[in-house]
Design a protein around this nucleic acid. Sequence first.
DNA 1: GCTAAAATAATAGTAATACTATCAATTATC
DNA 2: GATAATTGATAGTATTACTATTATTTTAGC
Lengths: 228, 228
Amino acid sequence: MDVLMQSLRIGINEKLYIKDPESSDLGKKIVEESILLIDEIGFESFTFKKLGARINSNESSIYRYFENKHKLLLYLASWYWGWMEYRMVFDTNGISNPVEKLSKAIEVLTQNVEEDNAFSHINEVVLNKIIINEYSKSYLVKEVNNEDKNGYFIVNKRLVGRLSEMIVAVDKGYAYPLSLASTILEGTLHQYFLKEHFPMLTNCNENVTPTQFFTDLIFRTLNLNVNG
Amino acid sequence: MDVLMQSLRIGINEKLYIKDPESSDLGKKIVEESILLIDEIGFESFTFKKLGARINSNESSIYRYFENKHKLLLYLASWYWGWMEYRMVFDTNGISNPVEKLSKAIEVLTQNVEEDNAFSHINEVVLNKIIINEYSKSYLVKEVNNEDKNGYFIVNKRLVGRLSEMIVAVDKGYAYPLSLASTILEGTLHQYFLKEHFPMLTNCNENVTPTQFFTDLIFRTLNLNVNG
DNA sequence: GCTAAAATAATAGTAATACTATCAATTATC
DNA sequence: GATAATTGATAGTATTACTATTATTTTAGC
């Protein structure tokens, strides 16, 4: 991504943090290192105490930024989906042909994540790994309805909505655009997980990508051919 | 389900429990009430202490059956998928036409769960709810590879394999039968979750079922028509 | 460059969790 | 009726998930 865009920020619901982590070095370090630590030891074993030790800071200081690790995960997830949305919109912006546009969107949303230098304190590759492994835990909780009311999932919802609209744009008659869109987004994470841990449950591997699987699925479902 | 089959048992990996819960009244009560309690308060808040209080038994007694709540969840998940597999095989058994067979399998795997009187101490309707809400947490853990080596996920894997074979049977040329099968199983849980908590992210509602969505998806993808 | 305010660190403390261990009381078996 | 197996009760430990208080350091304004 272009260096010109270095002042770009992903907008995140302010209720997800107590103090904006983007507003200080410590805050950025908390976000940066939490991604690495969650990836290393898993969300269940991750604690603010361990994170504090790792960044030579204090548990109590981290609590001044985030109420608890669940909110931190929601923050990271919002960042991730905001970033995906931004890239999807950016990369599909100039495309007028709806089929090409949808095709490009699927590509951006399902392809392997690569580092984006526009956001120096966030390692997108590792963040993608923790989204694959931990994202479900952010919404599969008893409090989900309340949290949704607080707007914690708004970015993901907007993204599903946008993808759904692109599906409608190529096939107004299709009865399940939202379900298809949500299946693609969630199924992508699942296919990457299976590829890593249950290779016998997926056809994705070094030679076959989730992008190919989902592109093929969408094109067959919407009765298109690859050239639009 | 027929009363004739009341001695039916779902086979579960013995490493998932310390003492077989089917072997005693207390064991059955643990399973029965854990399903209800997890549904009521969620897996995160669920503890063996609370379960003990609920069934007028003791925390320490429950620990003699299950090592921890994670193993209990794996046990419940194995039971659930074993039951689904059994019903899928049973209901598709006599069907020779591969398209009809696949169609029936999809129906069994995606339709709303109803109580099965063949297993008196398990409330399948509530178990289905906790699978929708908690199943991901059983495999989205750091230890997943080791647990897989222990065979904790064998039932689910076998089910994906069977469904994949049914897909191959109707379309030998289709390149992604495993990915499609795993997407259906996991996507079904997700669509039910969305229907309940994020209705704006799915087309499933009182009038449209996940079965319709997935049947349509499979038929379009494999280029079939509804009558086989 | 000094002061005041803000931010961070250090320490302590609490209730709950996730267990383990021990021993007592019941219940089943032979 | 004795013995073994099961279950229950109690206690104890390390860790988690915080909150509160106070000390120290950093920063910003003048």
